[in-house]
């Protein structure tokens, strides 16, 4: 458990101190939302209608941008070898890394979303559901993203491939996240059932992500 905590702490410190980590993702989030708005035009009622989906999609893209940070640096400086050969099971090590990624990417992005929501004329009722769904959904994004990062870590030009590999796995997260927020605004459908499904996906990814990622690293290094 000490090793787990040490790894978690190290990754958080690295993400916070190394330039371009957290701020880059949030900045990209802002950029994507702005670009979408420029494309769609300043029609406020229309923006309010599409705001939840747009925020979710933009958040997903920003999180995708940070996936190569999960393992790339460790692979390049050799810490990944040490991690793979250490006493801590690789699965737990990857769980710690994914958790650190969630804390330094998923949480800031989720908290930034309502601020960007003001730009999009987001209904104030939606703010709490938006943050809640994003906090739950970004867990799945970090932990499932681990699989994509592990599969492509040793490749040049791995970044784009990671996106292609994990995006199909992200779509359910996006669908349930957006439908939960929409339900919270519209009031017609239930908020709870898509939100619970979203949580279920995230909980499943807690196990699936590190285990599959560790398997990917192990089998490729044999």
């Amino acid at each position: 458990m000490t090793a787990f905590r040490a790894l978690l702490q190290r990754d958080i410190v690295l993400a916070l101190r190394l330039g371009g980590g957290v701020t880059l993702a949030v900045g990209f989030f802002l950029l994507v939302v702005a670009v979408f708005t420029f494309g769609i035009g300043p029609d406020l009622p229309l923006l309010a209608k599409i705001a939840p989906g747009m925020l979710w999609a933009a958040m997903l893209l920003s999180a995708l941008l940070t996936l190569d940070r999960l393992l790339q640096g460790d692979f390049e400086d050799g810490s990944l070898d040490i991690l793979a050969g250490g006493a801590l099971p690789l699965e737990l090590g990857f769980a710690a890394k994914a958790l650190a990624h969630w804390l330094t990417t998923g949480v800031p992005l989720s908290l930034a979303a309502p601020l960007l929501g003001f730009l999009l004329n987001l209904d104030p009722i939606a703010i709490l559901p938006l943050v809640a769904t994003m906090l739950a959904g970004t867990i799945a994004i970090s932990f499932t993203g681990m699989i994509g990062a592990a599969l492509t870590v040793a490749l040049r030009r791995g970044g784009l491939l990671t996106a292609i590999l994990v995006l199909p796995l992200y779509v359910p997260v996006l669908i349930f996240g957006v439908s939960a927020v929409r339900a919270a605004i519209g009031g017609m459908a239930s908020f709870t059932s898509p939100f619970l499904l979203l949580c279920a996906i995230s909980i499943a990814s807690l196990v699936l992500g590190p285990v599959a990622a560790a398997a990917a690293i192990r089998t490729s290094w044999q």
């Binding site: 699989i147 599969l151 599959a212 990917a216 089998t219 490729s220």
Partner: peptide, 27 residues
């Protein structure tokens, strides 16, 4: 498409095989 891309990107056949196998199982 993702599977095909993975096979085409990893040059070493054995590693490509295992990476694609893991992705296939997850998918």
């Amino acid at each position: 498409i993702g599977l095909i891309a993975l096979w085409q990107t990893i040059e070493e056949p054995l590693r490509a095989a295992r990476a694609a196998a893991i992705l296939a199982l997850v998918g």
